[in-house]
């Protein structure tokens, strides 16, 4: 470890970073809550009291009862079970969008930051253009062209979000690239890929983690908005946004159908945000900047 540190004067101190993160109680609680939400959603097939489409017509639109802890919807389907299954879909959808953003944004950010020049300029302007639009609006426009559906919607969101990662990675890369020890490695002919993997990626990782955590929250919200409008996840597949959309039509009789999916989304986004804030605080120098 010690000569490692000499070799990397700018090493990110990932360990110290994680240690500082662990002392942040709020972020830690958020991480636990998020883990619970994820585990409960993923084990829906095991835990859910009813199957996804099981209909109990006599008990439709019921409030909480011993049989249906959180009531039922207009077809008499069990809300608790549907929330659990919907969680799978929503989390997976948000994850997919962010994964696409990573696949697009990170390599391009590394490239632009490492190479600089015209390429950097062009990619930078491209990012500016994409960032001009509100994420949901641009994603909708892409969906208009490609057609609706979960995958299309998440690809669209991924594309729309990629410039944010691009910018973070680019500026982190640029600052490491200008360190003397990196310039020295380059001048003695170390291959670019090896420099990127060994010197640059470790430094990019921390700010990237912060951004990814915050982006998961944003993607979850955007996915819910699109599904609510019927442009993302479409029925009969349940998602939290979709449940909210259907629930809204019953708001006068069964407000619970609006309260519950909303609370599920809010708790999850809050957790992602708090984790992101915790990571950012653990990163220290990022916090005080205005942007």
């Amino acid at each position: 470890m010690s000569d490692h540190a000499i070799e990397h004067p700018q090493a990110p101190g990932l360990r110290r970073f994680l240690r500082r993160f662990r002392t942040n109680r709020t972020a830690l609680v958020a991480a636990v809550v998020l883990a619970l939400v994820t585990i409960i959603s993923l084990s829906a097939p095991l835990l859910a009291p009813y199957s996804l489409h099981e209909i109990d017509v006599p008990n439709r639109l019921s409030g909480p009862t011993p049989e249906h802890w959180l009531g039922t919807d207009s077809l008499g389907r069990d809300t608790l079970s549907r929330l659990m299954y919907a969680g799978q879909v929503s989390l997976a959808a948000a994850g997919l969008a962010v994964a696409i953003a990573i696949v697009l944004g990170v390599p391009l950010g590394l490239l632009a930051g490492y190479r600089g020049g015209v390429l950097d300029w062009l990619l930078g302007r491209g990012a500016d253009v994409l960032m001009t639009f509100p994420a949901v609006v641009l994603a909708m426009a892409i969906i208009a062209a490609t057609g609706p559906g979960l995958t299309n919607a998440m690809i669209a969101l991924g594309v729309v979000y990629s410039p944010r990662l691009f910018r973070v990675v680019r500026s982190a890369t640029l600052s490491v690239r200008q360190e003397t020890y990196v310039e020295a490695s380059i001048s003695i002919g170390t291959p670019a890929l090896s420099i990127i993997a060994r010197r640059i990626l470790p430094n990019v990782l921390s700010p990237l983690l912060v951004q990814i955590s915050l982006m998961l929250a944003a993607a979850l919200l955007a996915e819910a908005a699109l599904s609510l409008l019927g442009l993302g996840v479409v029925p009969p597949t349940p998602s939290w946004g979709g449940l909210l959309g259907v629930g809204f039509t019953e708001i006068r009789t069964t407000p619970l159908l609006v309260w519950l999916p909303g609370i599920a989304i809010a708790i999850t986004t809050l957790s992602f945000n708090l984790i992101g804030d915790g990571l950012r605080d653990a990163l220290g120098r990022e916090t005080r900047k205005g942007d």
């Binding site: 929250a217 919200l221 819910a224 908005a225 609510l228 909210l244 809204f248 708001i251 006068r252 407000p255 609006v258 309260w259 999916p261 909303g262 989304i265 809010a266 986004t269 809050l270 945000n273 708090l274 804030d277």
Partner: peptide, 22 residues
């Protein structure tokens, strides 16, 4: 503020309708 950033705006809209219109 932490809660305000995280709550879905469309859900807030629905809840506002529920509370102050219905």
């Amino acid at each position: 503020a932490s809660v305000g950033v995280a709550v879905p705006y469309f859900w807030v809209g629905m809840i506002l309708v529920l509370l102050f219109a219905i």
